[in-house]
């Protein structure tokens, strides 16, 4: 048995025929080719597959693709505009908050969601926002730095990001 769904991913409309048991993650990666969301634990524990579902961060590995019918999904591929990286992405590069990089798309999405709901996050809010994302390389310190820089950047003040770019 299969069903037809329509949804929007990174601003692009898609229609597809899917199996009802398919996860949103497998659908994004294997059916539509958005490989930005990563498969890691595949049980909703590590956050590597985080995408925005109608603006909210979710673990796409434990969401039914069928539930995304009519929804708007944003993956890490959807953040750059006109070849220019999103300030959150740029801040992760500038602070070298990336080692192996596998968890980073999930972090970027969680941080994007955080900065969408709060312009000036407290340290507690930052920790909470990424507590569902596991990184086994960096020890989080540089990730926290990157988030603070991205927050300042989005507020319009000059941080390390703009300096590094000039």
């Amino acid at each position: 048995m299969s069903l037809n769904i329509r949804l929007v991913v990174n601003g692009t409309r898609h229609r597809a025929k899917i199996e009802p048991s398919l996860s949103l993650l497998d659908f994004l990666r294997d059916t539509l080719g958005y490989k930005g969301a990563k498969i890691c634990c595949n049980t909703g524990e590590c956050g590597a597959c985080t995408v925005l579902f109608n603006g909210k961060p979710v673990n796409s590995c434990v969401v039914l693709a069928a539930d995304a019918a009519g929804a708007e999904i944003v993956t890490v591929e959807g953040l750059a505009e006109g070849g220019r990286l999103h300030p959150v992405q740029q801040a992760f590069i500038d602070t070298a908050a990336v080692q192996c990089g596998y968890c980073i798309p999930g972090f970027i999405i969680s941080v994007k969601a955080l900065l969408d709901r709060t312009k000036n996050p407290t340290p507690e809010e930052i920790e909470e926002a990424v507590s569902g994302n596991i990184c086994r390389c960096t020890g989080y310190t540089k990730i926290i730095d990157a988030i603070q820089i991205a927050a300042r950047q989005l507020q319009g003040s000059t941080g390390l990001t703009s300096k590094a770019r000039s």
Partner: peptide, 9 residues
């Protein structure tokens, strides 16, 4: 409860 991602779902 779990993580923000799970609480949203």
């Amino acid at each position: 409860f779990a993580s923000l991602q799970i609480r949203n779902t």
